[in-house]
């Protein structure tokens, strides 16, 4: 398997992972599960940036998107109800 085929296979896998984790983040009823799905989305997105040869953006995305945003969401959810209310 040469580099081009490996590149495209990795692109397709990353795209499928992004789509699945984004849909999971929207569809989850438990808010903590949705936040974890968003963290997984950010992690796969940073992997995509790394594959596209932008390690700067990958480090920023992994630090801010996967860690700090998750911590802020969890601290905000901690004081409210962690179930989505369907009105």
């Amino acid at each position: 398997m040469n580099f081009g085929e490996l590149f495209w296979a990795l692109q397709v896998l990353i795209g499928l992972g992004l789509l699945i984790s984004a849909i999971a983040a929207v569809r989850f009823k438990n808010l903590v599960s949705a936040v974890i799905a968003m963290a997984v989305f950010s992690l796969i997105l940073s992997l995509e940036f790394y594959v596209l040869q932008a390690p700067d953006v990958a480090i920023a995305e992994a630090g801010v998107g996967a860690c700090l945003t998750t911590a802020m969401y969890l601290l905000a959810i901690k004081n409210t109800a962690d179930e989505e209310v369907i009105g």
Partner: peptide, 21 residues
């Protein structure tokens, strides 16, 4: 090396956030 002030600060702040949480 790849990275810079913003990226390193974000990684350092995530470590401190781990210590806080």
């Amino acid at each position: 090396t790849p990275g810079g002030g913003f990226q390193g600060g974000a990684v350092f702040a995530s470590g401190l956030a781990l210590l806080i949480v």
